[in-house]
Structures are given as structure tokens and as C-alpha cells.
Simulated assay, not measured.
Amino acid sequence: MSTPKFAHSSVSVHAELKKRVHDYFHNQDIKPTGSSNLYLKAIILVAGQILVYTHLVFFTPVAWMAILECMVLGLFTSGIGFNVMHDGAHGSFSKYKGVNRMAALSLDMLGASSVMWNNKHNIIHHTYTNIDGIDDDIEAKPFLRLAPTQKHYKLHKYQHIYFWVLYGFLYLFWVFFTDYKKYFSGMVGSVALKKLKKTDHLFFWGFKALHVATYVVLPIILCGFMPWLVGFLVYTFTSGVILSIVFQLAHTVEEASFPEAAQSTNKMEDEWAVHQLRTTANFATGNKIITWFVGGLNFQVEHHLFPKISHAHYPQISKIIKNTCIEMGVPYLEHPKMTTAIASHISHLKKMGQR
């Protein structure tokens, strides 16, 4: 499937948003990259990951405490993904390219490939959000039907019930299957993978081997196979549920659109920025605890419009973006609470589960 083109508008929403946001950073005399608070948060999350892992593997506690610690390890893994890796991969963690690269490599340390992520997320998802057949983030066949243009199977009737289990296995599936599928097929869904450099191949295999040694081989040697298996499943299931639900609340809710290109021209109806506004939703932006933990990904509208701006600035620029959208008569989708966003996601799954 060829990638579609976006429409051009005489009155560009994107141009106006960029001007106003640029003026904000210029007038405040601040950089759009990460702040000292972000760096402190990164230290806390990485230190927490290392400490919990060390206690589990080298000073293994009793079973019930170990299971709880595996869940906490899943929280830290998700937190690092949201706050460190995500900003680093977008080049917004720091003004220094090398620091951003190091932050992005935190994903490789945790088992997934930052190279595959860059192709899947930064290049494809952020450009062609919610376009069926191109955006790999809404491709979960045959288990889930996330867009109205996708094929319907009988099991989808119950997807609003069993989706939690599928989300729990996302991280495991991501690390041990989908990365390899992309690597060997050279494709992200229907889009060709950007040509890999020699260093990309080295990093892919080197970090995959390091992850297996750290999270599989060493724990089995020190703790035994069954304790490792139970702990690893608890750890990855916790990570999978958290990572999945946060990303799904941004695009697969009732209010979000799933636009299609015109068949005759392969062109989208809206300009790129308006497309992002129609396909993306915020949630719980007033909750500081959620905002802190999910790395501002509850400000998903701001992130999709300005992915190279660190999430540390999203609460401030969200006011500018929302007011501009109101003035220009374009959508600004948001849920006041995380619970209402989850309810909307479940309702969307239920609707998509109908024939």
C-alpha cells in the first residue's frame, strides 16, 4: 500500500500553531528540550530499575515479595519507556544529540530495538496516524479490530473483554517476535523499513543478546527456571498492560477518527496537523501524578503536533494549542480523567467488535 499525501490549506493550522508555540519559547527564553526536573526523574527511574532488578536476582526475597517486586520492576520499565526512551528517540530529551541517543538506547537495554521503534513510531505512526494499512500501531489482526475498515472476525465480539490479556503480552511479543519480524522482513506493516546501517545491525544483535543474558540467562542461573519464569511473566505482563493502555488511549477511543485517502488521488482530506487533531486525544491532563509517570503522553495532542518538544513543556503549550484550535474551528479531543478515557476505549472496542 502506497503512503498517501496530505492536503494543503490556504489557512494552515499547522503554520499558525508553530508560530504561536515558537513565540512562547522565544518570549520565555527557554529551550524546547528537557529540563532539570526531567533529568532528575530519569535518574530516579533508572536507579529504581537497577535496584529492584539487583534485589530480585542477587538477593531474591520470598515468593510473595518477589512477585510484588516484579510488578514494581514493570512499573519502572514502563516509566523509563515513557520518560527517557520516548523523549530521547524523538530528540527532545536533551539539546545534545549524543545524550538523546543514550536516552533512546534505554529501550535496547530493556530488550526492544530503538532502530525498529524509530521506523515504526517516529516515521510511520507520527506521519500516518490511524490510517489503516499503514499505521502499524492499529494493526493487531486477527486478535483485535481497532479500525472500522479492518476485517471482522467472530472473536472480535468479545474483544472489549479479553483485550487486557492481550495487552499484558505486548511487551513479551514486542521483544521476542515483532522486532525480529521487522528486521528479517524489512517491513513495518506495509511500509518498507528504512535501510539499516552496519551500526544498526550491530546494535540490534548486541543489545538483544545483552537483554537475554541479563533478563533470562543470569536469573535462571541464580534463581532457577520456574522462579524466573513466573517472575518474568509477571514483570512483562505488568509492563505490557501499562504500555498498551497509555498508547491506546491516545488513538483508539470513540472520539478519534480513522481517515481514509481518496481512492482516485491517494490524498487525505485534511492537512497533516488537522489529521493529527482528528486522530489523537488527551486524557487526565490535570492529574500531575499521571503526567509525571507517563512522561506527558496524556498530552498526546501536543506530542503529535510537536514531537521534538520535550514533554516537560506540554502542560504550558497545551493552553496555546487548545485556544488556537478553538479559534480556528478544528477539533481538540480530550478526556478529563483516565477512567473516562479507558471507558471510551472499551466502548470503541465493543463497537469495532460488532459486524
Rank of each mutant, 00 (worst) to 15 (best):
F58P: 02
L297T: 00
F299K: 01
F293G: 00
K350V: 11
S2I: 03
I220Y: 08
L73H: 03
F299C: 08
V62W: 07
H126Y: 07
H90A: 12
G91M: 04
K350E: 11
Q263E: 15
G133S: 05
E302C: 12
H55N: 13
A261Q: 05
T285G: 01
S318T: 04
S257K: 09
M1H: 14
R145Q: 13
K322P: 02
F25W: 07
A103E: 11
N282E: 01
P4W: 11
S92Q: 14
V21N: 07
L40P: 02
I50G: 05
S264G: 01
A281Y: 00
T54G: 10
S78I: 04
F203T: 11
A256H: 02
M85S: 08
P315V: 04
I124C: 08
H125S: 04
T33Y: 09
C325T: 11
Y180S: 13
H160W: 10
G189N: 10
N266H: 03
R101E: 03
I221G: 06
H303L: 04
F293R: 12
H251G: 03
N118V: 05
S10H: 02
G296V: 02
G295W: 01
N266S: 05
E139I: 03
F82N: 01
H211R: 03
P259C: 11
S94V: 05
K208G: 02
L17I: 01
